[in-house]
């Protein structure tokens, strides 16, 4: 266990040594902290309307101004961070708990299991991710849970493929063969031998998928099919703000800055991790076609 702690500390030191990654971590930590302590950070209620003060420009009272219902935009950005972070964690959990075992089984056993599982993954990839999510929401109805599930399922293929590739590279290694020869069960071998040696690409994928999930959730809300109002969501704010570009340009611009910085930070962190952990310097090229959001 102490070896694990040592390794984690070592990893953290190497990541922190890179300026971009350090800034990204600081920004993400600030967003997470503010989201958790929202009630103490911002003095307003995110959903209470005040029709006496609608679309007010930024001021000392309302740093980001107010929206069309007189709600403080900065407050909604802070609570919107909760929505984003919850969606990201939920989606990663859904995608990981399904995608990682699928990749493990497909890569470990090969043969018909591999063929069947990978064809199913191909089905998930046969549509651009955002359309897949929209189709799911069309069936499930528009709700917070539907958005979460849709974003999560869209992330399954990348976990499955990356885990499978990692397992294939480990499958014939001596320590895996040894467990097999000693009579260790396949399940033991997969989860206790192969999986613990596959964590670095999975960790990188968790960070990348968090970024994709936040972007996808915002995009769905922007399209009007994501988390329903009045729950604050950055994408929903951009959607409404777009209607007031002439009267209140700050409305769509300021929440967009926070969203963009979040995505950029997660991307930077993901690239740094890939670099430090696996010496994979060309990670973005592999991940890019999967993430198509436009």
């Amino acid at each position: 266990m102490s070896g694990g702690v040592q390794r984690s500390l070592d990893l953290a030191r190497r990541v922190f040594a890179r300026k971009g990654a350090l800034l990204s971590i600081l920004y993400l930590a600030a967003i997470a902290l503010v989201a958790m302590l929202a009630r103490w950070v911002v003095p307003f209620d995110p959903v209470a309307q005040n029709l006496m003060s609608t679309l007010e420009p930024p001021s000392t009272a309302h740093w980001f101004g107010t929206d069309e219902l007189g709600r403080d935009i900065m407050t909604r950005v802070v609570y919107g961070a909760r929505t984003s972070l919850l969606t990201a964690s939920g989606a990663v959990i859904i995608a990981g708990t399904i995608g990682v075992p699928v990749g493990l089984v497909a890569g470990f056993f090969g043969g018909w299991r591999d063929a069947v599982l990978m064809r199913i993954v191909d089905v998930l990839l046969s549509l651009p991710g955002i359309l897949f999510a929209m189709a799911l929401i069309a069936v499930l109805g528009r709700s917070q849970l539907a958005a979460l599930v849709a974003v999560g399922i869209t992330g399954i293929p990348s976990f499955a493929r990356i885990t499978r590739a990692q397992v294939l590279s480990l499958r014939k290694r001596d320590f895996v063969m040894a467990v097999e020869a000693l009579g260790g069960s396949s399940a033991y071998n997969m989860f206790r031998t192969v999986l613990p040696n596959s964590w670095s690409p999975i960790l990188v994928q968790i960070v990348i998928l968090s970024s994709i999930a936040i972007l996808l959730e915002a995009a769905l809300a922007f399209l009007g099919v994501g988390i329903p109002p009045p729950t604050p969501s950055w994408g929903e704010m951009l959607r409404t703000g777009k209607s007031y570009l002439y009267d209140a340009p700050y409305y769509a611009v300021l929440p967009g800055i926070v969203l963009t910085l979040t995505i950029l930070s997660l991307d930077t962190l993901g690239r740094t991790l890939a670099w430090v952990l696996e010496d994979r310097h060309e990670l973005a090229e592999e991940a890019a076609p999967d993430r198509m959001v436009p």
Partner: peptide, 29 residues
């Protein structure tokens, strides 16, 4: 490149509308 990939298209679109349609009035919003 990182910026091009990281900026959400819907936000970039809004910024372009603000510049070219709202400010400069060169193109329709």
């Amino acid at each position: 490149s990182a910026l091009a990939l990281g900026v959400p298209t819907f936000w970039l679109g809004i910024l372009l509308i603000l510049l070219f349609a709202v400010q400069l009035r060169w193109l329709p919003s």
